[in-house]
Design a protein around this nucleic acid. Structure first.
Lengths: 243, 243
DNA sequence: CGCTCAGTTGAGTCATTTCAAACGTTGTGG
DNA sequence: CCACAACGTTTGAAATGACTCAACTGAGCG
């Protein structure tokens, strides 16, 4: 499994930041050398609760993390997914009280980085503060796309759109050719992300398989016909261009 | 109509910023005295198109503005609403290319403020840059709530939640007691915001009226039973606390 | 006065949910 | 190595929330 280990996740994060907002070598180094605490979390464990205040952010080093909104009767909606190299709650630097929970969708490793340290490097290097702001804006752009997806598209399109989005996002990660990638989510979790029942996810998935658009294996997705899938999901990568 | 006129909208915006991030008198003055171009827009007019790059933000002075995501077949999803005193596209300072369109839902007045000016005051007063970042984070928190709302709740709850949210947001605006406020949206637009058909909005609205939860007049909402409405929409104002 | 736009209503259809049961796989302990 | 438990997937049948289509009403405006 060619996955980033140790704090190379931090390097990945910095690289991503730097690809939008030019960061000097000094600023990059300041970020990479920040102290981080390594944490392992098993699948299905909430490691940030709604309403909790935290003093650190969580950088995903390995695995897959979901940000969850909760409804009164216990239903959960995943509002975003975070893959290695992404900070799942960068906004907590600015608003420490969590509006959403963070859950490890599969066994995951996190790097905890203190808010104080991030604020300090943000003050010392204004370009870093700008980069953080931008990262939050890009994160929000993805949430907006999900809102469009869930609000306006039928189940088949929602799934297709999600698969295209994740394929595009994983591209920057490993040497994936963009057709095959790990997506260790259960159908239940897919349903939580797409506003659908796991039963309906199951049947819709079967449809996509029968159409030969994707091959779905345990923990991974293979896109068989990118153009058809992108058109089924009306996927336009523009909103990810900067991500 | 006790609505903010002229550039008192800017004062309102600054006041809102300052209520979360302490801003010195000098910083506040720097913002308020920024040059702004006053623009009137009629109802249903897009004044920012998807994909367009702009060099200014749009501060709502009067009216109601919707941010729209668009689907391939022309369906539109409102991803957020903006009332007077809010900047509808603050994120454009950081990412100038618009992922979403801005439309005046009703006749509206906008103040255009140049990105360059905003960046300049952000550099001169780091607290302002922080305040901008926070404003974007709070905006994103609202979008996330909408995602939960649309992804997990039935029509009745969605409407109830929206009415509670807007009541809470309008509170900061005029001397509304939080029970009655102007909401100049058509049922079609409500549907676009909630992922519903205008027909279904109509019938659901009738239900809420018959239950004596709200009174809906042309262009305005009166909440008759706040507790019942909040519970129907599972509304928890925490996510707006800072807004 | 007639046009246009928003709201209303009805009937039929469809997508998605609910409930319930069975099946397959994986990991674990005896 | 087998048995079992736990979990995720698959399937069926029935119920339902929401949509579509289509027509009609009413209000505002030139």
């Amino acid at each position: 499994m060619p996955y980033p280990s140790n704090h190379s996740a931090m390097a990945l994060f910095v690289q991503r930041l730097a690809s939008h907002t030019p960061l000097g070598a000094e600023a990059r180094q300041a970020l990479i050398s920040l102290p981080a605490q390594r944490i392992d979390v098993r699948a299905h464990v909430d490691f940030v609760q709604v309403g909790a205040s935290s003093d650190h952010v969580n950088l995903v080093a390995e695995g897959l993390v979901g940000r969850f909104g909760q409804t009164g009767d216990g239903r959960r909606q995943i509002v975003s997914l975070h893959i290695p190299g992404e900070v799942a709650d960068l906004q907590s630097v600015i608003v420490p009280q969590a509006m959403t929970a963070l859950t490890a969708l599969t066994g995951s490793t996190l790097l905890r980085v203190a808010h104080d340290d991030l604020r300090r490097v943000g003050l010392e290097h204004p370009a870093i503060a700008t980069a953080f702001w931008r990262a939050c804006v890009l994160d929000a752009a993805i949430v907006q796309q999900w809102l469009v997806n869930i609000g306006q598209r039928p189940a088949r399109s929602r799934l297709a759109h999600l698969f295209c989005e994740m394929a595009t996002r994983y591209r920057h990660l490993d040497q994936s050719d963009g057709r095959r990638y790990r997506l260790p989510m259960t159908q239940e979790q897919l349903g939580d992300a797409l506003g659908l029942t796991s039963v309906h996810v199951n049947r819709t998935l079967q449809g996509l398989r029968e159409e030969r658009l994707v091959a779905v294996a345990r923990d991974s997705i293979e896109i068989l016909d990118w153009d058809a899938l992108a058109s089924a999901g009306e996927f336009d990568r523009t909103y990810l261009a900067a991500a």
